[in-house]
Simulated assay, not measured.
Amino acid sequence: MMIILTQKINLDSHKQPDLTIYLTAQERTKIKQTIELKEVNSHNISVVKINLSRGNFLESEDILTDDRATFFVRIKAKLEPVITVKSESKLDLLKAAYHLGNRHVSLEISENYLRFSPDHVLENMLIKLGLNIYEELAPFFPEIGAYQH
């Protein structure tokens, strides 16, 4: 069975979603996509089609529903391979963000670390700059475009 999700809503805090779907950062950028579910669920849904209108974007914890608001799906960030960059020096992290941004890398920025998708060329550059890098499986939340805020 297939469900078509067409809108984002705020779900009453007492109501639980019917289904939770885990998406990578890249998958959360797509407002029109078809997802085949590999796991059996109590609703016998095997395919979820996301068909949001332009101007929307998906974030972890969003709730999507169908046209009649009868079925609710929570979007969650999926664990994915990432490189986490750390340094005792905030200035070194700032310089790393500059160099990664100059290469148009999707980048998660926090006060204590940077995070991006694995790329051995970028990893080597950061090591040469004296930063510590760690291969991890973690949810990835890259910065969204400045015009989407």
Rank of each mutant, 00 (worst) to 15 (best):
K90S: 14
G101E: 06
Q33N: 02
S106Y: 13
H149C: 11
G145I: 09
K32P: 08
T34G: 10
N10L: 02
T20Y: 01
T24K: 01
S117G: 10
A96P: 00
K49N: 06
R115K: 09
Y147E: 15
I35N: 03
L137Q: 15
A69P: 12
N41Q: 05
E123T: 01
Y22V: 14
D12M: 02
Y134T: 12
P139E: 05
I21M: 02
S46R: 07
G55L: 01
N132C: 07
G130P: 06
Q148K: 15
K49F: 05
I3H: 05
R103H: 07
D92N: 08
E108N: 02
G55Y: 03
I45N: 00
E27H: 01
S46K: 10
K95V: 11
A97P: 00
Q148G: 07
Y98G: 08
T70E: 13
F57V: 04
K86F: 13
G101K: 10
F71L: 05
Q33C: 05
L137H: 08
V73N: 02
L122F: 09
R103S: 11
L58G: 00
N112R: 11
L100Y: 01
H149Q: 10
P142C: 04
I3N: 01
V48L: 06
F72G: 01
K76D: 09
G101V: 03
L137F: 12
H43S: 11
D62V: 01
E135F: 11
L126W: 00
Y22R: 03
H14Q: 13
D18K: 01
L93R: 03
E111A: 13
A146Q: 12
A138R: 14
H104A: 11
S53K: 13
Q26C: 08
S89Y: 00
F57S: 05
N44T: 09
Y98S: 11
D66K: 07
G145P: 04
T34P: 03
G55T: 03
M2T: 15
F71R: 03
V40A: 15
E36N: 10
E123L: 10
H149R: 14
K128E: 09
L107W: 06
N102K: 14
K30Q: 11
F57E: 08
L94A: 15
I9Y: 02
A146P: 13
Q26A: 15
L114N: 04
H43L: 05
T29W: 06
A25L: 02
G130E: 00
F72R: 04
I45P: 00
E59M: 12
Y98D: 12
D66E: 03
H149K: 14
D92A: 14
V121L: 14
L91S: 15
S42G: 06
